[in-house]
Amino acid sequence: MKMPHLNKRQRLLIQCAPFNEKRIDDRAMRAAVFRVKKTEMFSHQRAFDRAVAGLVQAIPIPNQVTEWLSKGTFVAPRRRTWRQIVFNPVVLAIGIAVGVIAGISVFKLIERLNEFPGEPTAKRLLTLASSTKPLLLDPVKTDAGALGDFFFMKHRLPHYDVPPEFADFKTLGCRVFDDEDGQRIAQVWLVEKKIQLFLFPAERDLKTGASKHFNGWRYVDQDRWTGVVQEKNGVCFMAAVRGSEKDLAPYVGKAKE
């Protein structure tokens, strides 16, 4: 067989290629040997090396030496390094799999930690906010804080109070409607940055019927709209704006997720 074209490194590797296949544990060496394995030149080299090695083995070893050491005990077994263990394909595959599972678990955990009772309703209302036109609301020009009494007096909705953080903003309009679950929702449109406020019943425990409480402000986002939600006396309040958390953060001060 004709000698294939080899690069300089491969030619040098062939020059010092072990004549015993067991000693080839380097990938580059194995590849180089594979390419020339069937060539006449390499087969001559192998035959030459094996003949010399056979002669080396025939060099008599003094009895004193053989008494001391039996063949095969000269070289201590190779210790596996951390690098070899880590880059073992099996360990690597297990590592990647565990990493992916851990990543998904952490993601799910963070998602669960950010969840709060009433979040599905809040997300639904954010979708509604994105499609609401001011014309749909009854024009009411007053302070948002004053609407609590209005909702109670006109619509019999107790505790539908706007928190102090948004109480001083002027309103453009408001309305009360039933959502698809039959819950009474109050919607208020503010002059300030076209913020929309929603008041809706907090999620209830199916067994006891009691409202599920949570503390502080919680952020929620949907379709480029962001809301910040607070629960008080069984009623959730949400301020919604087209934008991100940064747009709402100044209003709720040090609101924690």
């Binding site: 020059q15 010092c16 072990p18 380097d26 000269f74 070289v75």
Partner: peptide
């Protein structure tokens, strides 16, 4: 016939091209 490539290089303190 006791050593692989890396061991030979370590023992002889040579580089691959020198050993070759």
């Amino acid at each position: 016939d006791e050593f692989n490539q890396d061991e030979l290089l370590a023992l002889t303190e040579l580089k691959t091209h020198e050993l070759g």
